[in-house]
Design a binder for these strands. Structure first.
Lengths: 221, 221
DNA sequence: GCCTGTGAAGCTATTCACAGCT
DNA sequence: AGCTGTGAATAGCTTCACAGGC
């Protein structure tokens, strides 16, 4: 984090999104044995511009060399330092329907520092089971478990009608960051961050822009 | 749509996202019998500002009255005119895992104009079945079916390793708008729009912003 | 040459501020 | 008084352009 005077310069969301993406790209790159990368290469993978990549590198304090570009490991480390919490962080997942299970499956051992450690559902037949290595609790225990485990991040994967109630409980339990997958806008107190993942909206958007074809030669989305 | 000369003024993504959201909010509002709405009310629901709502109204060409605000039905109609295709539009969904099924379930009769009409999967035991009223085809038929049905919008809900291949097939079949749920960046030819829905990224972002504490200061050059 | 790092310029999106209406 | 519609101002983000280094 950068500071100006005694005020924290909070990094823009867009930058956080991009460096999260960079890390994933670099991870898979490293699997292929590539040790260094130029800004224009990373830009190509991330579908951005080289200048923007270099700006982002400035933001996270990484510096490369004109001869070889950036060392992939440097980037990964710097991004980790920038994005991750120093200690492992637990995530609560609420709603173990198809969506919830998809998220669990996907997150399985993906980032060691950010693990789904508790799941919640109203459905009694899911409670008590262990899905993808994660214990399932009844919804009524949400606030207590979240507080006891010191969980600060929650994922809302319940139907729209239940989303606000679930968010309220999570916040009461101490959660400060939410990912909401329900197609509603949550109301949360100041100091709690929520990012909305709205698949309906994305589909409508894609349909709209699909119908905007016949654009001139200009290429980039 | 606005035009400048003979060139389409393409509406910014952000605006499309917001008006899609407005419509959903208005739909549920109408269910409760509210016929008119002020900009500040809609802004409250959408977590935006009243000015921004009024700007968006300008964009889609809706005008309200100082006395009663906007007529909800006017807004819904105008948004439909702006966002929706004149004829019903089919969507192809690729990947019938948890994520794909969640999307199907959610979209069930949601927007009459935008329906998932074909699903695809590699897994033989899914093929041939009808899930959520939608026929499941083998992946090999993707290009043919998409072309035959004139499908222009596709949803990629397959594992990361398969996403680019699926996207290529969709595009070859004639798709011009993609929603990608896999955690990779797709490479598509100019003229094809893709919107990325990246749950991993959202989670990392939420975790980052949840942690607004006085952390380390970035130091050594 | 081709690269990085970065001040400055250029754009885009959002907000301000106020005229005009009811 | 309270609201809409909107030019003007502002804030935020991206790209340009070039100095400096291999």
């Amino acid at each position: 984090m950068e500071w100006v005077g005694d005020r924290a310069m909070t990094t823009p969301e867009r930058v956080i999104e991009r460096i999260s993406l960079y890390r994933r790209l670099l991870d898979s790159l490293k699997g292929e044995g590539q040790a260094t990368i130029f800004s224009h290469e990373l830009a190509g993978l991330a579908r951005g511009t080289a200048t923007q990549v270099r700006r982002d590198m400035m933001t996270i304090g990484v510096t490369g060399s004109p001869a070889h570009g950036y060392r992939a490991q440097d980037l990964i480390d710097a991004i980790g330092l920038y994005l991750d919490s120093p200690e492992p962080e637990g995530v609560a997942l609420v709603g173990i329907g198809n969506l919830g299970r998809a998220i669990m499956a996907f997150f399985q051992g993906r980032r060691p520092n950010l693990r789904i450690v508790a799941a919640f559902d109203v459905s009694p037949e899911k409670v008590g089971r262990v899905i993808h290595g994660c214990r399932c609790h009844p919804l009524d225990d949400l606030e207590r478990v979240v507080r006891e485990e010191g969980i600060r991040v929650g994922v809302v994967a319940v139907p729209a009608s239940a989303a606000q109630d679930v968010a309220d409980r999570l916040v009461r339990g101490g959660v400060r960051g939410l990912v909401n997958l329900a197609p509603v806008r949550l109301h949360v107190p100041p100091g709690v961050h929520t990012t909305h993942v709205d698949i309906t909206m994305s589909l409508e958007k894609a349909a709209y822009f699909a119908r905007q074809r016949a654009g001139r030669k200009e290429g980039e989305p």
